[in-house]
């Protein structure tokens, strides 16, 4: 599996577009999911994912370790997400516009998932990122430290604080929604 992936990456590095298409197919959900978690907007997440793959394609020669492709790609997406968030901050849009664009056609309990995603939005980008990298994507503390270029201790405390805040935000979100349902 790993060897097959390495072969694909090496072929893509030599300009083989078919090999790169296979890589996109393999990683598109991961990159999109991360961008969506950071930006809470499907359209923007799609733009970022597309841009991340283009940057990855044009920078493949710079990838030092082929086995670290996944974290390298996430790092590219992370930088693009922060750029978007900065831009968003400058333009100051109303949050309500964006809230309407959250959602989709996922299976399971959509109300519950909406609570969770809205609770995620209450966190700072750094805390959101910590939850996404550790709890959603399952990267180790060491991998996250390398990816974000921060000390291991900072990673641990950031994950701890993010989980604490997310737990509080979910409780609050659930209480508010249930309260409204009862009142309605």
């Amino acid at each position: 599996m790993e060897q097959a992936l390495e072969r694909l990456i090496r072929r893509a590095r030599q300009g083989d577009q078919e090999a790169f298409a296979l890589l996109v197919g393999q990683y598109k959900d991961k990159v999109f999911r991360y961008a969506y978690g950071m930006l809470s907007d499907r359209m923007e997440a799609e733009d970022v994912a597309q841009e991340a793959f283009l940057k990855a394609y044009t920078s493949l020669a710079k990838l030092q370790q082929v086995y670290a492709f996944s974290s390298w790609l996430t790092q590219i997406a992370s930088r693009l997400c922060y750029d978007r968030l900065q831009k968003r901050k400058r333009e100051q849009p109303t949050d309500d516009d964006r809230l309407e664009r959250i959602g989709g056609s996922e299976k399971g309990d959509p109300d519950l998932y909406l609570d969770i995603r809205q609770a995620m939005r209450a966190l700072s980008p750094q805390h959101r990122e910590a939850i996404l990298l550790r709890d959603v994507e399952g990267y180790s503390y060491e991998e996250i430290a390398a990816m974000l270029e921060i000390p291991l201790g900072t990673v641990k405390s950031r994950i701890r604080n993010a989980r604490l805040l997310l737990r509080q935000a979910i409780k609050l979100e659930t209480e508010e929604n249930h309260g409204e349902a009862y009142r309605g």
């Binding site: 996109v24 598109k28 999109f32 999911r33 597309q50 399971g108 519950l112 998932y113 959603v136």
Partner: peptide, 21 residues
């Protein structure tokens, strides 16, 4: 568990791959 399940149900749009290529 909830966060993991909620985000793993998020899938990239079909057109993404085509747009990239």
């Amino acid at each position: 568990e909830l966060v993991r399940t909620a985000f793993h149900s998020v899938k990239a749009p079909e057109r993404l791959e085509e747009a990239v290529m």
